[in-house]
């Protein structure tokens, strides 16, 4: 077993364990901690999958931001009896059963698909980059630069060969093949979304301002 495989199984178990304990735990604070464990291990899985930047973002935004927010919420609202929630035994068994059935359905459909075969079928007609360039090879998880460029709509990983005058057999009719999807628009528009959400959240969270106090 290679180191990567060992790491994968270690963190897969941690991720699943965290998720299960979020689902079964009766104590909100424990749930929050399990969530941290689960999300943190997922970040490591991202690193294993060669997505370093996504892994770091997951740690920073999700674990260091969103979960902190949730824990804050727990702390502000957890008073006495409501910290612990007891659900009845029948409920627990029923939901556990539903969960197992659900898991069965998803795992028999999704993991039964031959992904390699599908990739081959789909790969026909996608443009591929001519050469991967950069300081460090992308295959090893150094996707920061290509990601950054794709936020500027520059798909250096896909479109580099478009401008080159390679006679192409597949696309003789169109002289300018379409560009691959770049993410300039979502990158920009999400800032408006965040602004709106910030305004909304701060409106809801702040105390009602006293009217007519400024002389």
């Amino acid at each position: 077993m290679s180191v990567e495989t060992m790491l994968f199984w270690l963190f897969a178990i941690l991720t699943c364990g965290g998720a299960v304990s979020v689902a079964v735990s009766q104590n909100v604070v424990r749930m929050a901690f399990s969530l941290v464990l689960c999300l943190g291990s997922t970040a490591v899985m991202f690193l294993l999958l060669g997505a370093d930047f996504v892994g770091a973002t997951q740690l920073m935004v999700y674990v260091g931001g969103t979960v902190v927010l949730l824990v804050f919420g727990v702390m502000l609202t957890a008073t006495g009896p409501f910290t612990k929630i007891k659900s009845s035994g029948a409920d627990a068994i029923l939901s556990g059963l539903i969960g197992v059935i659900f898991l069965f359905i998803i795992s028999t459909t999704v993991t039964a698909v031959d992904w390699g075969d599908i990739s081959q079928k789909v790969a026909i007609g996608t443009h591929q980059k001519t050469a991967a360039r950069g300081f460090n090879p992308e295959q090893q998880g150094n996707t920061t630069r290509p990601l950054g460029l794709s936020f500027l709509s520059v798909r250096a990983d896909r479109d580099l060969n478009l401008s080159r005058n390679v006679p192409s057999v597949e696309k003789p009719v169109e002289d300018a093949p379409k560009l691959s999807s770049g993410y300039l628009l979502p990158f920009e528009i999400v800032s408006i979304h965040l602004l709106v959400v910030l305004v909304g959240a701060s409106y809801l969270a702040r105390a009602k301002r006293r009217v007519a106090t400024n002389q």
Binding site: A51, F53, A201, A205
Partner: peptide
Amino acid sequence: QVFSLFVIVLAAAEAAVALA
């Protein structure tokens, strides 16, 4: 990877409002 980055950001935004 781009998808998952946006998902992380959108989830954070959603969590903020939900918490408020």
